[in-house]
Design a protein around this nucleic acid. Sequence first.
DNA 1: GCCGTATTGTTCACCACTCGAATTAAATCG
DNA 2: CGATTTAATTCGAGTGGTGAACAATACGGC
Lengths: 391, 391
Amino acid sequence: MPAIPITAGDSVRDVNRHLILGLIRARQPISRADLARQTGLQPSTVSLITEQLIGQRWVTEGAAGQAARGRKPRLLYLNVERARILGVDVRPTVTTIAIADPNGRVIAYERMPTARLPGTFVRNLCRRLQAFLRAHPRLVCEGIGVTVPGGVDHARQRLVSAPNLGWRDVDLKAPIEQATGIPVELENAANACAIAEASFGNHRDARDLVVVTVSEGIGTGIISGGRLVRGASGLAGEFGHVSLDERGPLCSCGRRGCWEVYASNAAALSAYTHGARAVPAGRAQALTFDQLLTRAEQGDGRAAAALSGMGDYLGRGIAMLATGLAPSLILVVGEVTRAWPIVGPSIEKSATARSSSPLPRIVPAGDGAEARLRGTVALGLQKQFGTAIVA
Amino acid sequence: MPAIPITAGDSVRDVNRHLILGLIRARQPISRADLARQTGLQPSTVSLITEQLIGQRWVTEGAAGQAARGRKPRLLYLNVERARILGVDVRPTVTTIAIADPNGRVIAYERMPTARLPGTFVRNLCRRLQAFLRAHPRLVCEGIGVTVPGGVDHARQRLVSAPNLGWRDVDLKAPIEQATGIPVELENAANACAIAEASFGNHRDARDLVVVTVSEGIGTGIISGGRLVRGASGLAGEFGHVSLDERGPLCSCGRRGCWEVYASNAAALSAYTHGARAVPAGRAQALTFDQLLTRAEQGDGRAAAALSGMGDYLGRGIAMLATGLAPSLILVVGEVTRAWPIVGPSIEKSATARSSSPLPRIVPAGDGAEARLRGTVALGLQKQFGTAIVA
DNA sequence: GCCGTATTGTTCACCACTCGAATTAAATCG
DNA sequence: CGATTTAATTCGAGTGGTGAACAATACGGC
């Protein structure tokens, strides 16, 4: 059994193997010498371990790199063919299944409708996954990451509640693992986005960042010191349901004036169609948010004003997160990023006015789709690359 | 050099030594067999390492413990004489210097006035510390923990700003280390309280807790997954300056309606004396908060009402922390805990009304003095016991 | 072209350290 | 008083990192 119960159950070699493999993934291409410097291990040790990793086909050796003087380094890459990850992104109307390589690049994906009843959905999903795997028999799939728009009890790996789906206490892990034989990681969508941003992409070195997902509701994924903040029950990140105004409109959660009542897509729609500042829960909208974005792009002043107002409210919550958590970076994810020229300055202005200390950078990170899919990949990778999230 | 760069620079043995020493501190008294079970190490390895630790006088062997069947275990204790910690708790008017054992028990302490100018203060403090050490020449002092009521840049180990003190960008570490030759750890007071609660006391197993310190202002210390949430700059935890009402009274930070404007000691005083709900910044009070507490205890209905109102506002912020961070425990620290029979239910009621998910336990943890001192001890111990914070 | 220098990567003997199994020690129970 | 159970120690074996020497490049100056 274990020597170093860092990730209990690992031997010393396992720890270092994970360390090096994780570093190769995060910093590729990278030379053995650099690995030795960055890990603090001896070059000899690094050589041994990388030799093993190449033998197991986890790593490939590429062309020689550049060096000012001396022998040129031989660069190491992650072998993207060695491990594939299945990602399942569950959304209220549509669920996306994707297969990706360990760099987070999506190779293929398909969509399926999200059934209303969780039982039906799980059965359908398992069938689709099995068909997907049969259709790609040569792929070595090492993990499945599942993201859901709701609270996940991470210890028990169960979906606790997803208001937008109307589901409560659903076991997604066991049935999928049984149907596919591949380990499943379940996570809240905003948390998955945060992990994805810290694992791949432009912000992989950020160790303190907050992701704000904006769509029907608002979710937050918090990474502090390179680790996800999950809270005791795994239900942290519900800042969307912090009240900005006690006397505000009713929210789907039953209370009043929640941040997401003011700053969600639906709120902007409501501001546009009814001139109201916030949307009463449950009222249907004639226009879609996409259409609103298009109108703003086409020069509709009232649409732009609605989006600008949404940015103002987003800024309020972002100011709260910035003052309370002091991240180095706040990422906004959602359809609304399409209108960043309008929304971005509005957020910036609103948040600046409400924050005493200098604000962190506030950056748009695409509509949710890609971020969530990359999140599922990061999740599926965790088993292979340790805690991932930088090394 | 290192094999396992967990805390870079440590060998395998060092890691396990730290692991076991930390576990003995946290779970003492404990048998070797229990250590083996809890670490996953072999009993033989544990025996070897504990033998070393006993030889180095870090650990002592006490009486035999109880067991239902079989040989009775020989219990191990931390040798409280081996390492002492100096704690320095800097407050606006008075600074406390204490010497404590690694269990957080204060052996002796003394107070000194806090000079207005940081330069003067540091000189005075260094003299006092040197005298303190000369007066106790036989104590092995392994670390100095310093807590300040302000933001600390943990990477640079500098006090960034302390509004209550009027200090900005002060180096407390280097001068004290130079004067005493003992390593110094600097930390924000609320963070130190959080570390103390997770290290000592009744809540040492809590891995997700939030400490709310209530005095002139409101500070929060967040521990998530057993680790302190510091934020990128080390300035996380400023939830006291999140605005509850945009149109609220001015706060010392320059913005309006901050949580601490409504829920600090001064706010309760103002509610009592002026009938106002919040205190305008900078206005002096005739009554002290202690006197207000005494009046409430003596049956003054208006005093009780002021405190109850303070609890109501405390509950609002606590609801925000509970929803956003989902800790298993929220600890309230400050003089206000003296009036817990009044304030506690008021907080509970207010927070419950503003939170959809079930609230974590909300517990009073004494006025700040003891908590902050134990926080300084926990800080000073970090060098010796690794990251501390549970094992 | 050749040699000094700088840097990468490999080989190998040594040894620290953990494991695992056997053994000793101590306590309770029938 | 022996059987059983749990605690702690002893010791041989093997894993695996270290460190130093060495091999392999590459470049620049002469």
